[in-house]
Design a protein around this nucleic acid. Structure first.
Lengths: 130, 130
DNA sequence: CTAAATGCAAAATCTTTGCAGCCTC
DNA sequence: GAGGCTGCAAAGATTTTGCATTTAG
């Protein structure tokens, strides 16, 4: 595992947040991270989670994902572009790799939009909720 | 124009919100709606906008859209499924019709996800910002 | 007139910030 | 030790709610 640099000091709280992000597949909300971190650091405060995530975002060690439920979630940057699945029943988010997503470029490109990125999210029920 | 039913009474404020949604192409935030509504009803309060939108959502007269910037926006229900474009410079959202969006179903369907909907948002610069 | 709807301000959330004490280095 | 980091609590920001007043029907 790569030695991560978070801020200037290595603390239990930051180790916990980073471990959780590394061990989990799929994006996690601040509350998810805080709940999980509590098992490593029982007294970790939510403010520390916010601060740690902000720090990780600023140093590009974490990526923010906002899915159609409006909840901000965080995951490690992934080399491959990917998509997400949001379970409308339990609210959990999953990473997907759908390969190339294609659509008809013709209908709007001429109107002067410059596309730099795209986000695709599928919604429905996850395996556990079916 | 169809006669809309909002709650039990037809008020200037509700007429204003509905007119704005009808006259605008693309989804609008609560603040957008409030700012625009002020021109019809100078004293309309933001709480009334929240309440009116909530009422319209509950009666399926309006649809909520949350794009990757996390801001909730509202638009009239559209018969045709469509996508959105979010300008990363000015923050405005636009409706798009990209026709059929396709991706490789094979990679996750067998794992037990049931897909009921999908949201595609393109990001970049709008014609005004280029 | 009656009661639904509004505006205001207070309450409820969620996120950020200030600060005294703790803990890395 | 010095100063970065933390937890707590206060401050902001956003959305919802309670209530007296206004207003549609």
């Amino acid at each position: 595992m790569t030695v991560q640099k978070i801020g200037k000091r290595r603390t239990q709280q930051r180790e916990a947040v980073l471990s959780i992000l590394q061990e989990t597949v799929g994006p996690l909300s601040i509350n998810d991270i805080h709940d999980l971190a509590t098992e490593y650091c029982p007294d970790i405060g939510i403010a520390t989670v916010y601060r740690t995530i902000k720090l990780l975002l600023e140093t590009d060690q974490v990526v923010q994902v906002i899915l159609p439920d409006g909840i901000g979630r965080y995951e490690l940057p992934d080399a491959a572009p990917h998509q997400h699945f949001l379970c409308e029943e339990c609210g959990r988010a999953f990473d997907l790799d759908l390969g190339k997503v294609s659509w008809s470029k013709s209908s709007f490109k001429r109107k002067g939009f410059r596309v730099e990125d795209q986000e695709l999210c599928l919604l429905g029920s996850c395996p556990d909720c079916r």
